[in-house]
Design a protein around this nucleic acid. Structure first.
Length: 423
RNA sequence: GGAGGGAUGGCCGAGUGGCUUAAGGCGGCGGUCUUGAAAACCGCUUUCCGGGUAACUGGAACGGGGGUUCGAAUCCCUCUCCCUCCGCCA
């Protein structure tokens, strides 16, 4: 959520910035509500002042054995008026909050303007596109042939957009999880977390998934619970409604979790293979940062995600998302995109985002600089470090051999019982 | 699933309708003392929203929501969460 004060003081800017994202918003109501609010609030406060004074008088009279009944009957009416005003205030505040919750974050000044993902800007690449002397196969064919991926049985068990990993395939997935967690914890200073894979409404409101994007989520029938679409949700809400000490920042966490997404409206997109699943594994990085350091932290987070791909010897590029492609809560996002040899295209493997204080304001995560200074909102950052299923696909395709076998990247072999090749 | 007990400021904790402007402690900050430090002592120390250049000043918040009352941390209803015991369970 944006700072309501900021929105009221800079309505043109907010509208303009939302438009750059392709989102049309109207702030007339918000302005009107705040005018009304002020009016009612003043009236209510004056009446309360009156009542507080009268209350003290009643108490004194009673103590001194005098009759306070004239004041009491007078205050009866005042009490009714206050209640009416309070009701109206609550209504207005709720309406205003509802609107404010649907306004997207303001993109950072360094974010390029654009109308679609086509206008994302490449900032760097790593490695080279692998060359093949034979016809490259897609990962789902490789996986099926090796007996390590089974999509048919997955759809029997659950439905489409699910996968079964078998044998060396399951082992590969598990090896990658451990590999990533080890690097992030032992080398990069993140604290490992295993959070709940289910989150409540407040948590999803905190990250910005609710109220606008409920259709992307799996909701548990009969409960106010959702399956998490990313570990960003439990990790961000770890400190919801808490006050942190400034010198404890940044706080960096890493979590492996499954992620669950409805993928409603993505029919026909990426229907084959592991690319777009209802359930996938992800190692997620999260950082709570001082505002003045958050952009430096974003660079660091992105590099930590890249480190995984470098060690796996995979070719990738980093793009900065343009205004139109930026997510709802983000102020700036770097996508790390892996090269997919079969498709001959780059594919998102990690999304590293600085949400600034947008989520912190929703989730009420603050910090104190010194004993007597005002509380401020932290900046929250998250990034995949990295997504598992897509990494497996890229490994299968990039390291495939003509005979259908797949070489295991050197860095992973210690995690695979020194297996060097899946045959 | 059943029975009972709880939720109070950064933390702990007192408070059963108006002398509460939320006691007291811890922690934090400042001071006295000291060559310095510790101890001791003294003072300050919740957050949010308004008004004011400021000193200051008004209001709100005792888990969330609702109710009773002139007046609620305190009484009633309801929801959430935590704890204890019983049952079930990896």
């Amino acid at each position: 959520m944006l700072d309501p004060k900021f929105v009221l003081e800079n309505p043109e800017l907010v509208v303009k910035k939302a438009a750059a994202r392709g989102v049309e918003i109207n702030l007339d109501e918000v302005k009107e509500f705040s005018r009304e609010k002020k009016n009612y609030l003043q009236k209510a406060e004056n009446l309360r002042y009156e009542r507080n004074k009268a209350s003290q008088l009643v108490a004194r009279k009673k103590r001194e054995g005098e009759d306070p009944s004239s004041i009491i009957s007078e205050m009866k009416e005042v009490g009714r008026e206050i209640k009416l005003l309070e009701e109206r205030l609550k209504e207005i505040e709720e309406k205003q909050r509802k609107i404010l919750l649907t306004i997207p974050n303001i993109p950072h000044e360094s974010v390029p303007e654009g109308k679609s993902s086509e206008e994302n800007v490449e900032v760097r690449t790593y490695g080279e596109k692998p060359e093949f002397s034979f016809q490259v196969k897609p990962h789902w064919e490789i996986g099926k042939k090796l007996g390590i991926l089974d999509f048919e049985r997955a759809s029997k068990i659950a439905g489409s957009r699910f996968a079964v990993y078998l044998g060396a395939g399951a082992r590969l997935e598990r090896a990658l999880i451990n590999f990533m967690l080890d690097i992030h914890t032992a080398e990069k200073g993140y604290q490992e977390v295993i959070p709940p894979f289910i989150a409540n409404e407040k948590s999803l409101l905190g990250t910005g998934n609710l109220p606008k994007f409920e259709n992307d989520l799996f909701k548990l029938r009969g409960y106010r619970w959702y399956l998490i679409p990313t570990a960003e949700v439990p990790l961000t809400n770890f400190y919801r409604d808490e006050i942190l000490e400034a010198d404890s920042l940044p706080k960096r966490f890493v979590a492996y979790t499954p992620c669950f997404r409805r993928e409603a409206g993505s029919y026909g997109k990426d229907i084959r293979g592991l690319i777009r699943q209802h359930q996938f594994n992800k190692v997620e990085l999260m950082s709570f940062s001082l505002p003045e350091n958050s952009y430096q932290e974003l660079e660091r987070l992105t590099q930590d995600a890249e480190e995984i791909l470098k060690r796996l010897g995979l070719h990738y590029r980093v793009v900065v998302l343009c205004t139109a492609d930026l997510g709802f809560s983000g102020a700036k996002t770097y996508d790390v995109e892996l090269w997919m040899p079969h498709r001959k295209k780059y594919m998102e493997i990690s999304s590293c985002t600085n949400c600034e204080d947008f989520q912190a304001r929703r989730a009420n995560i603050r910090f104190r600089r010194e004993a007597k200074t005002k509380l401020e909102f932290v900046h929250t950052l998250n990034g995949s470090g990295v997504a598992l299923g897509r990494t497996v696909s890229a490994i299968l395709e990039s390291y495939q051999e003509e005979d259908g076998s797949v070489i295991i990247p050197k860095a992973l072999r210690p995690y695979m019982n020194d297996l060097d090749r899946i045959t």
